[in-house]
Design a protein around this nucleic acid. Structure first.
Lengths: 334, 334
DNA sequence: TTGTACGCGTTATCAA
DNA sequence: TTGATAACGCGTACAA
């Protein structure tokens, strides 16, 4: 490991000059520039980021926390994040905070200035960051992906979840369904509440509020299967199911088949997210396509705006979604 | 942000004493200990890791690079890694290196001592790390997950891929299948080659080498669908398919249905990995269960052994796998 | 345009 | 048991 001193010595200049070459190239004569560059090459010198960060309080690192890395939905968002971050010269510190309360461990990295900013994909701001947000407001380098809520008081990127849910319900009603079962996500999560609001709005409009059965889920495959089993055991079972995640919809398809029924002949199923597999399931899944990649890219864009000091106001971006109709939804049997 | 100096001043001791309290607690009188602890609490002091790393050349960070974070198989491994790393006081820097040649960017972090070690889940050592491995051998803090190869010359954790593949084939032959189609992964990858070897060994043993059709895939859903379409178009199409990943098997199931055929009535399908969804697909998937979580944990264990200086020899760990038989494989029609 | 010298926050050495 | 002080590698006034 060579240091800036070695380079300076070899090039016959001062460390300050080497530093200038490394950082801005300004006020350096061509001759000196060449000498320094040569020395850098010859030694295979690479600046020590620790020392650099210690001096500048800049790390060129971003932290991303995700509730569950095994969920394809988040995986796609993360890809967008990594791509945008890398392009901007940042590396990404990814933390899966599904188990334990490890999110605060990652949040601590931000507080301790070991990262320049943080993107969190869950629905609550890590408690240890409350002070920071309270003090710096929109200037705090923290952005939320997916889970917009006014209470969060940080910038965010998301879709119009209420509208999307409403469109799914409208689609089911227009097919002729009357009794619909809904499996939500965790209702502490703003997106689940927004979607639920869209659901009830559509049901009201169609005069079918009383035919709605709502169960609380947690986005997981198992839960989708379990809840569906419950719904199918009802006296008058629903003719259509709306799951707030594709994973739960996959679980629903499984439970339907296990009950000896057929989707969509006996019961329709709609999901949410449009993960990669939705196009390939049996039957392929009607769902809401979220611009996952774009959500990832935008969160980075927002975050860098804050870090660079340009952005001082909270920004909440709503991206377009799309209702994707596939095989899993059809008209109910007469 | 308070520093060690603030703490020292408030406690009325030197920074050296504070540092001792922080690190080993040795040679510190109870009275002083209490004073220092009090000052730390009062100021809410947290050590600056940059400064610490600069001094100690220790970062308590591990880098993990993964070919494709959207693949559930890797996601499960990563969970194991994060869990073990966190428990040992390390944070994980996760890099998705599926697109571009970003893996070297992450490898650079290791070279520049911004991380203490690296776990790579792909099949080739990042080029920029060749020198390091050549020089330090097994003492280089680099461990591979899944893709064991002698050529890699680093420690690794994996299953016996040849044996597992052989067991899948034996299972298919024992059901009465004769013409079998195999969709491999990238053949530059050791695991694909090992599995292929297991495949041919079983075929030879059953005298069915000539009834084997082998296509090269890439582990993706699409590829599984495409290759299966090709296989189904053959004059004498196979009665069973063995895909080297569950994702490809999902693609295969889709293609089979698209061709108006039924699995397992018309054609059997076996996968590899046993990702979460395999139990819930239609039909549920016969596959090889890899101990993904355990693979993740073990790679960390191995890596920490190297970092702590204990391990000096290369270690290649083979974990147990299990053939999981579900609905997607059955006897061929008479 | 270039160099000198200091400080970022910490740990480690040595002396007391 | 404790303290003074010198590094770790870098960026940046300020001076030349």
């Amino acid at each position: 490991m060579s240091t800036i001193n070695d380079v300076a010595r070899l090039a016959g200049v001062s460390t300050a000059t080497v530093s200038r070459v490394l950082n801005d190239y300004a006020h350096v004569s061509p001759a000196v520039l060449e000498k320094v560059m040569g020395a850098i090459d010859q030694l295979g010198y690479e600046p020590n980021q620790m020392a650099k960060s210690l001096r500048t309080l800049k790390t060129s690192r971003l932290i991303v926390t995700v509730p569950n890395i095994a969920n394809a939905f988040f995986a796609h968002i993360i890809r967008g994040v990594e791509e945008a971050a890398l392009a901007a010269g940042y590396t990404v510190l990814l933390g899966d905070v599904g188990f334990g309360d490890s999110e605060d461990a990652y949040a601590a990295l931000l507080r301790r200035k070991e990262a320049d900013g943080m993107i969190f994909l869950g629905h609550t701001l890590p408690a240890s960051l409350n002070d920071l947000v309270a003090k710096k407001g929109a200037a705090a380098p923290i952005v939320n992906g997916c889970e917009f809520s006014d209470a969060l008081s940080v910038s965010s990127v998301h879709i119009d979840n209420a509208l999307a849910a409403r469109q799914v319900m409208d689609h089911l009603y227009s097919l002729g369904h009357r009794r619909i079962g809904v499996i939500t996500g965790d209702l502490r999560s703003p997106i689940s509440r927004d979607r639920l609001q869209g659901v009830t709005a559509s049901a009201d409009q169609h005069g079918r509020s009383n035919d709605l059965t709502i169960l609380t889920g947690d986005y997981s495959i198992e839960c989708g299967a379990d809840m569906t089993k419950q719904l199918l055991a009802q006296a008058k079972r629903p003719t259509a199911l709306f799951c707030f995640s594709d994973d739960m919809a996959f679980g629903a398809l499984h439970a339907i088949r296990a009950a000896g029924l057929d989707c969509p002949a006996d019961i329709s199923v709609a999901g949410f997210d449009d993960v990669h597999l939705s196009r390939f399931s049996t039957p392929s899944l009607t769902t809401v396509r979220q611009p996952m990649h774009e959500i990832g890219r935008k969160t980075v864009e927002l975050l860098l705006g804050i870090i660079d000091g340009g952005t001082t106001e909270r920004v909440n971006i709503t991206l377009d979604h799309e209702l994707v109709i596939r095989e899993s939804t059809a008209a109910p049997k007469a």
